[in-house]
Amino acid sequence: MRRSIWLPIVVLPVGALLALLIAALQPVQIRAYALSSPDGGQAAALARGQQACEGPIRLPSAIGGVRIWGGTAAGLAVLDVTVSDASTGRALGNGQIIASPAVGAYDAALENPVPAGSSVRVCVLAHGPAPFSLLGSLPTHPEIHMSVDGKTMFSEFSLVLLEPSRKSLLAALPTAFSRAALFRFSWVGPWTFWVLLVALLGTFALCGWAVAAAARADLPGEPTPEAETEDALPAHPSGQAR
């Protein structure tokens, strides 16, 4: 095969796969638990000294961080985040957030990881100076309650609990595929996504084969069986002999 054909067919996919591999090694933060309360509206506005709490939540795995959604109207707000035992109130982990007017997700890294199986309550204490608008929605979990300064609210603030350490996307794929395997055909399992991943990577080779075949068919003076079956067009805008 000519060099002008095989060289790009080999070099481009290999280079692309290497670049994708490097991208897949970048660390990502994995959610251990999501309350599944959309951040569609304001659940509470926390003025300086006010505290919003939510629980009890049973942890399916260990956590090392808390993510909430919100923002200030103007200026900064300092928030203390505490994860405590839901029954005894003992603090299990603490973290801090400095929120700005940019509405979005804010992460608090906990000083200590909280072990799996714990039943916890998550509290957000505002230290001001700006009030913090905590986003959430109407309650969706009958067993989980939100309160502000001890008063039960008819809302939930959006809450995600994060795994203690970051992993590369590649290392996180088993978790992703086991989650993706639910609510599909009954025969679908994590294996299905591994097979698809391998097939997806195989398409780079498949495309190389397709380009090589197309290039061979286009080579001048090398008619292929497929070319022989073509109809001749009566006229062509490119003026090319066909």
């Binding site: 993706a180 599909r184 679908v188 299905t192 996504f193 698809l196 097939a199 997806l200 195989g202 398409t203 498949l206 495309c207 084969w209 397709a210 380009v211 075949a213 197309a214 068919a217 069986p225 497929e226 079956t229």
Partner: peptide
């Protein structure tokens, strides 16, 4: 005959499409 280049393309599209459908 189905041109080989087209066959490779269609197979690629099907693999990618199935991945999207299930993912």
């Amino acid at each position: 005959r189905l041109p080989a280049g087209l066959a490779g393309l269609l197979l690629t599209v099907v693999v990618v499409g199935v991945a999207w459908a299930l993912l």
